[in-house]
Write a protein that binds this DNA or RNA. Sequence first.
DNA 1: TACCAGGAGAGCG
DNA 2: CGCTCTCATGGT
Length: 296
Amino acid sequence: MSSSRTFETVFPVRDYDLAATLDSGQVFRWRRKDASWTGVVGKHWVRLTSAQNAIRAQTHAPREQWDWLRAFLQTRVDLAAILETFPGDPPMRAAVAACRGLRLLRQEPWECLASFILSSTKQIVQIRQIIAQLCDRFGEPVAVPSGEPSAFAFPPAEKIAGLSESELRACKAGFRAPYLLATAVEVASGRFNLKALRTLSHERARAELMNLPGVGRKIADCVLLFACGFDSAFPVDVWVERALRRLYFSRRRVNHKKLRHFAATHFGPHAGYAQQYLFHYMRAKNGMAFHRGAEK
DNA sequence: TACCAGGAGAGCG
DNA sequence: CGCTCTCATGGT
């Protein structure tokens, strides 16, 4: 049962754009309510509010320690130091200037993997809808303060492994349903060890992930970057490919492979952060272009 | 209405 | 390899 009581803490932060970070296509379950964002981390309902050089966090159950949330938000990451490592070329500078404070979160690996299997050839709005249905139908309910809409944990691999393909298709997963199901079986059975990925090299971990059904290079790099802490991972999707071609290779023919090589060598040790800035920059610019009716 | 979306896998030469 | 096609579904 729920009461209106909440428990809160404050994380001191600098250069942290909470809204941009939670709405940048790396997580899909956060919703804005007034000036706050509500979501579920693990088994806990969370409300986050941006303040002056701080993030205020509220949960429903009393918490003695907040390491789990600090880890998710990555509040102790020195963003300024990371931005220093970016190349100083004009496109990169423009991308950073467009959204200083954009961060990378540290997600739970299974939720990240499952989410991005469901992401392929979908718009972010639709990815949110599919994942919301999946959690509403098959996730365990989590305690929420009274007056708040009910919330559900992300269904674990063991749960999804026991579902039928049609149950997943009912969530509008489409042709991704059999991929998610088969991958859930691999993870739930223990044949695939998600937790061990971070002990491997980037290349080895990526190769392992790409053995899973429905997981190619792009989704593998998303999991490595968003969940496993490989800052060098550089997911190349249609937006990032478009960004690289327009910003760095305008009017030059480059194939996909050459583009990936450029991505792997040009952006430094925190290339994944650079990628997220380019992705956000491109999406924002395209949005404005759409309203002007220009751009292709 | 037509096109496209944070792709992957299979088939082909 | 590298290219093309298909897959399911809804937003714009």
